[in-house]
Design a binder for these strands. Structure first.
Lengths: 214, 214
DNA sequence: TGCCGGTCTTACCGGTGTCAAGATAGGATT
DNA sequence: AATCCTATCTTGACACCGGTAAGACCGGCA
């Protein structure tokens, strides 16, 4: 079975068409937008006919599912180092949010595809869920650490996890694929914005818990 | 010029094809998802030929732009009453966020289209910006009111406005078109979730300002 | 050598966005 | 009233897309 053959391709006709298609799809979205993404186009670009992809993916939605699963795995890989950072639990939660926004900006191709569920096959959504749960677990852990460090808090950690995710995701969506995209084209300016917003919020919630205010 | 003729249609061939197409498009997205949206399909459904739409919209992206502008206007109409609510400025900001999430849930068709900028014609984006600025201004006003009521705060109101928008939008995206959609199919449960998250956050930031903590 | 399974190609189908040409209706002009 | 005019709508065509079927090709194996 000449399955994966070698890494340098050149073997049969292509060598590793599956990964090449995924990479080309992400690249196409990155440079020309998601509306330019078609199986025929990326197949041609990779140097094969428009039907070759069907020997590696059941259909287009299966490709999209694979890209999304890869995107969530990649995201988890970007988030997890934040948990090892020095400082307080709030510092790490803030770093997580900034990393999330940064991921969206630097991996626009992945980010745009992963938030278009209509492109995926619902029957294969379990792949996405598995990969997404890993990222969710990281956020959840960081929020839980804030709760543990702050003592008794009248907030539900699950709800606050959704809130943390929502805030990071909202900033990413608005600035990378939304109406604020025109104003935040500089990655460091965007990072500063995300850091300010998230730090102000997380600090207010966890470093000044209720009962201490006026 | 038989422009708009009458409201009951029946006049010429259709009467008010433009609005009928917009309404049918939104309905189709609502019931079958955005991947099922095509000019030919909605044209057929409305009872005209597949090319009739081109006498009212330059192309498909122009239709999408019109839908998006209408969506933002509709959103502003849902948000603005929140500014008249009794209570504190924080109460009104929270109500704004809940209304935003509620809008997304109850107007899934509008919401899905308005956050897919690749479907629109960039040349017509000014229509969207005009309508979107109205919604942004409402959020901005509510945030500013919190700042005014809280006194001197070391936060930039513009950044916090983006934060407020991001949080509401993130909750909406995650629960209406994202990985949390399976868990929040009940509108009242979703409202409660949004209220808890947003109220905890807004109260932490604005009702317990820095300098009063431990 | 001949077989065989995985890979890729060619050819085709239905559907979609878009354009060009023509038909039609209803008001305005004479 | 007969005519023109213009917006509206239809028909027909084109290129592109996702998807399928049939066959060609390559590599390993008996």
């Amino acid at each position: 079975m000449p399955k994966s053959s070698s890494t340098t391709s050149g073997h049969y006709h292509h060598g590793d068409l599956r990964h090449a298609l995924i990479a080309e799809a992400v690249r196409t979205v990155e440079t020309e937008g998601i509306e330019a993404l078609s199986l025929r186009r990326i197949s041609t670009r990779v140097g094969v006919s428009h039907a070759a992809a069907y020997h590696h993916f059941a259909d287009k939605s299966a490709l999209m599912t694979a890209i999304t699963a890869e995107a969530f795995t990649h995201l988890a890989g970007v988030l997890s180092p934040c948990l090892e950072l020095p400082g307080t639990a709030v510092d790490r939660l803030t770093a997580l949010g900034v990393a999330y926004v940064d991921f969206a900006y630097r991996n626009r191709g992945y980010f745009l595809v992963m938030w278009r569920p209509e492109l995926r096959d619902p029957a294969l959504e379990s792949e996405v869920i598995t990969a997404g749960d890993e990222a969710y677990g990281i956020i959840r852990g960081a929020v839980q650490a804030c709760h543990d460090q702050a003592g008794e808090l009248p907030y539900d950690p699950t709800e606050m996890t959704i809130g943390a995710w929502a805030m990071a995701h909202g900033i990413a969506q608005l600035t990378v694929d939304g109406p604020l995209a025109k104003w935040f084209t500089d990655p460091v300016a965007l990072s500063h914005l995300a850091r300010n917003i998230i730090d102000n919020t997380a600090t207010s919630i966890y470093a000044r818990p209720p009962g201490t205010g006026s």
